[in-house]
């Protein structure tokens, strides 16, 4: 039996790339100005998984992501960097899921991929910064977790040793499989795309993407099954629809207040107490600091 590593990755709007045009004049988020990217810590997670794969015999790295059709982009990106296969959980019924509903869906997909040894995810995604889906999924799978992994110290078919990054120090822990690991941004950066893998997986596509092609390439994909990125819907994972989306999400957003960025006109201030205090007050009130 092969050693199965499942990496949870998410495509996110690049909230770090917030330029001055990220907010519209009316104070709403200008999503068009935010490109969709591979969640940064999930790339650390992918590297972590690939390092395990490098050390363990017969290991395979499977990418699992949940999102709209275009999230297949990050599966391709993962294949270029060394992942073996990808699954995209995509269904309108997933929309509006909070972290609890998301972890429910992901845990069902992982169970469908069972037996597995290791589930690896980034610590948190930059659009929500909650760091919840990893541990919540581990709980639903009934497996232990190791959060904030910074370094893969050692691994073999039986057990894994990991250095964790904590607030005030580091901790080295050891556990057997199966286990869930969340990876901290201070862990090793992901290796770049591999030219051979890029050639091999350039045309890896989901069924939805194939159907959008103008020509029918189906026969080519039948010859090269590794180019198929599987799409899974709610039915494929036998999920209870009531436990998904808005109805399956205990948290509701009551209100949203946009942090409105002021125009580029610069304000010139002196060094009087009042001027400095007013500036600090403005920064605090607009939640830029504090």
């Amino acid at each position: 039996m092969s050693f199965k590593i499942i990496v949870l990755a998410k495509q996110v709007p690049d909230t770090r790339n917030v330029g001055k045009d990220a907010m519209k004049a009316d104070g709403t988020v200008n999503r068009a100005a935010l490109p969709a990217i591979y969640n940064p810590e999930d790339l650390n997670a992918l590297e972590f998984a690939l390092r395990v794969k490098d050390k363990v015999k017969d290991a395979e790295v499977i990418i699992l992501t949940m999102g709209p059709f275009r999230a297949a982009e990050i599966i391709r990106e993962s294949l270029y960097r060394g992942a073996d296969k990808g699954f995209l959980l995509t269904d309108r019924k997933f929309a509006g899921s909070d972290t609890l509903a998301t972890s429910y869906a992901i845990s069902l997909a992982i169970k469908k991929l069972a037996p597995f040894h290791l589930v690896v995810a980034g610590r948190q995604a930059i659009d929500g910064d909650t760091a919840q889906v990893g541990p919540q999924t581990a709980e639903k799978l009934g497996i232990p977790q190791i959060t904030y992994a910074e370094e893969l110290v050692d691994v073999n078919e039986k057990e894994i040793t990991i250095k964790r990054r904590l607030e005030r120090g580091v901790e080295t822990v050891k556990a057997s499989f199966p286990i869930a690991v969340t990876v901290h941004g201070s862990a090793a950066d992901c290796r770049p795309r591999n030219a051979k893998l890029l050639m091999k997986f350039k045309h890896a596509k989901t069924l939805t993407e194939l159907q959008n092609e103008t020509k029918d390439y189906t026969h080519l994909y039948n010859d090269r099954p590794y180019l198929n990125i599987d799409e899974w819907t709610v039915d494929d994972i036998n999920a209870d629809v009531d436990a998904l989306g808005l109805s399956g999400s205990p948290t509701k957003v009551k209100t949203i207040q946009n942090v409105v960025f002021q125009s580029k006109d610069s304000k010139a201030l002196g060094t009087s107490n009042d001027e400095i205090n007013d500036l600090m007050k403005e920064l605090l009130d607009s939640h830029i600091i504090g």
Binding site: V29, I126, D127, V253, T255, I256, Q257, N258, V259, H287
Partner: peptide, 9 residues
Amino acid sequence: FGGNIIATI
């Protein structure tokens, strides 16, 4: 959303 919105949950 990277600190761009304040949400009440």
